[in-house]
Structures are given as C-alpha cells and as structure tokens.
Design a protein around this nucleic acid. Structure first.
Length: 335
DNA sequence: ATCCAGGACATAC
DNA sequence: GTATGTCATGGA
C-alpha cells in the first residue's frame, strides 16, 4: 500500500473513567490516517466485508458505520476504528488508532495488518471479469455485493477455534462463545483511552482446562472436548498450525480431517479464512443447496463433492465464489 | 414448547 | 458411499 497523508495527530492526557485526569506520564495518542481507493486493488465495501459473518475471527465492534478492532501487533496493543466514506469505487477509508507505542512504527504495522485482514490487495476486478458470464445468482452478486472482500484471520489458532465453534451454531452464538473465551481466558489489555480488552486466549491456556470447566464458563456445549484436545496438541507441540501454510490443499485437508470435531466444512473454513488458501470453499447447508440446485439440477451430490466442484470450477477464486454465494443466500434468508 | 443454528460423528444399511 | 439420530446451548 502506498502511503497517504496523515490528517491529524493529537495528543490527549490520560483520563480516568470518571473523566478525571489521573496524570499518567504516558500521554495517549489518537492518530488518524486515510487509505484512499488508489491504494486498494479495486472496489471495496467495508460494511459488507465486516458484517458478512466470516469465520476468520470474532466480528468487530460495530457503531453505526464505524468498526473497531483491537489487536496486538508485534507485541504492541493497538485499538483501531475504520470508517468508509464515499461509495464502493470512489472512497477513502478513515482509520483512527490508539496505541502506547511509537506512532510511525505502529501506523506502518497497522497499514500492513489492515491490508491483510481485509484482503485489500485481492484483485476483485479480475474476479468479476473472469466470471462475468457465470450462472445466476453469482453474476448478480457482483453488483449487489460489489467490494465485498475475503477477511483473513490474524491468528491461526483463533481461526481454527472460531471455525469449530461455528458448527451447528448461528453466527451470533459462535461470536458470543468466542467473546466469552477471550473474557475468561485471554490476556487482558488496558488501552490508554481507559478501555479494557481481552486477546484471544493461547492454546496453552485452554489446554490446561477440562472440558467441564470450559463448558461451565462459556456455553461452548459439546464442542468443549475437541477444542481442549486440539489446544492440548498444539501446546504439546504435536501440532503446529503454521505448517499448514506450506502444505498443499489436499495434504492440509487430509491432516485436518483426522482431528475429532473437524469435518470438511470446518477444515475448509480454517484453510480459507485462517491459512488463506484461496481455493478452499467451505460448503455448509446453504452452499450445498445452492450448488446442487445450480450446477447439479437438484441432484443430491454430497457436500464434499460440492466443495471439490467449486475448487475445480473457480480455482483460486473458489473461496471468493463461496463468499459471494453464501452472503447472497444469507441475505435472501434474512430478507 | 419445539425448532433451529455456516456440522460432525457413530451406526446401520 | 449414503441415510438417520444425536450431540450442548441459547434464541426465536
């Protein structure tokens, strides 16, 4: 991403919750910068992207058109808010962030982070052009969902657990469970603006728990056992999620399916949203329905077959095709 | 109350 | 290989 001018840099003194200046030496800095449409590879729709229930990580905090997330970037806590002004083609994204560390260094990290998690360098125009003559409803989603981008998780463990939580659960509910995991077991961070946040817990933290404890605190249900078990394997170095970056899709899938609680859909979610394998296409009930009706004339093909069909038909854009079709189905259902 | 939620798994054919 | 019941849990 190319740099674009910073608008304002302000310094505030640290205030307690009562609004009283408690005189910390470490003044807190709220910085603002812009990402313009010339820095992003094609159209962008921030709202649609953040609100499309992708399982890369728990959904960001929403306040109207503004979305806020907290991350630790290279060990530095950053709270940042995004807001898009303009339309999907001519726009600027306003970014405000708060950090305890150096502004320039944090801004550099944050720009790279945002580019990655929001898929800003994905060549969406190529996707639209390549499949402009595809069957409906995919073709019409290019207009409806223009600028929708594939989010990537910040942390592989978090993505895997979120994918596991999503099974047989609504998006709202798996998000609630993930938030409870963070609240009870995640490392606490207090930001300079006085707000309090919890990071996603580490595998070793969850590995120390019993399924019963986890269930009591988080309403995680029957998924407790497999989450604890997988956490334990990671903590014991029997499983290294980073390895999946170098495996081929087929190798990765074969390994993932051996874990209790990880089936084809969860594995594909992890590979797509976590690892970033663009040809992975998670097939849930909605995708299954769409693919069988659209491409198999209603004939009952298995979900696994539907997934491999999507990979063959859309190649490295299979994840995107899935994202657009899923969002379409989801919106149809809501509307 | 019963059913459903971006499924996975055991069991049975 | 494919079909069916079951699995916690909270919200509709």
């Amino acid at each position: 991403m190319r740099r674009c001018k910073r608008l304002t840099v302000c310094e505030y003194s640290y205030l307690s919750q009562e609004g009283q200046d408690i005189g910390l030496t470490d003044a807190y800095r709220r910085v603002e910068f812009l990402i313009s449409d010339t820095e992003i590879n094609g159209p962008f729709n921030l709202n649609e992207t953040v609100l499309s229930a992708q399982t890369s990580e728990p959904e960001w905090t929403v306040e109207g058109q503004k979305f806020t997330d907290v991350e630790e970037l290279d060990g530095v806590p950053v709270k940042y808010s995004l807001c898009q002004e303009g339309n999907t083609d001519r726009y600027v994204v306003n970014v405000k962030f708060i950090t305890t560390s150096s502004i320039n260094e944090t801004e550099r990290r944050l720009r790279a982070h945002i580019e990655r998690v929001l898929g800003l360098s994905d060549d969406l125009n190529s996707f639209y052009m390549k499949f402009h003559s595809e069957y409906e409803p995919l073709r019409s989603t290019f207009r409806m969902l223009r600028g929708l981008r594939l989010m990537r998780g910040t942390n592989l463990y978090e993505s895997l657990v979120c994918s596991i939580l999503s099974q047989n659960n609504s998006a709202k509910r798996w998000n609630q469970i993930a938030r409870l995991l963070m609240k009870h077991y995640g490392r606490h961070m207090r930001l300079p603006d006085g707000s309090s946040h919890f990071l996603f817990p580490s595998p070793s933290k969850i590995a120390k728990l019993t399924a019963r404890e986890l269930r009591a605190k988080t309403s995680i249900g029957y998924r407790a056992e497999c989450v604890v078990e997988i956490s334990r394997m990671i903590a014991n170095d029997e499983l290294n999620l980073e390895d999946f970056r170098k495996y081929s899709y087929e190798e990765a899938l074969e390994i993932l399916l051996q874990f209790y609680g990880v089936g084809p859909k969860v594995a594909d979610c992890f590979l797509l949203y976590g690892v970033g394998k663009m040809d992975a296409a998670p097939v849930d009930v909605w995708m299954h329905r769409i693919v069988t009706e659209l491409y198999f004339k209603g004939r009952n093909v298995s979900r696994v077959k539907a997934a491999s069909f999507l990979r063959e038909r859309f190649g490295d854009w299979a994840g995107y095709a899935q994202l657009y079709l899923f969002d379409y189905a989801r919106r149809r259902k809501l509307g």
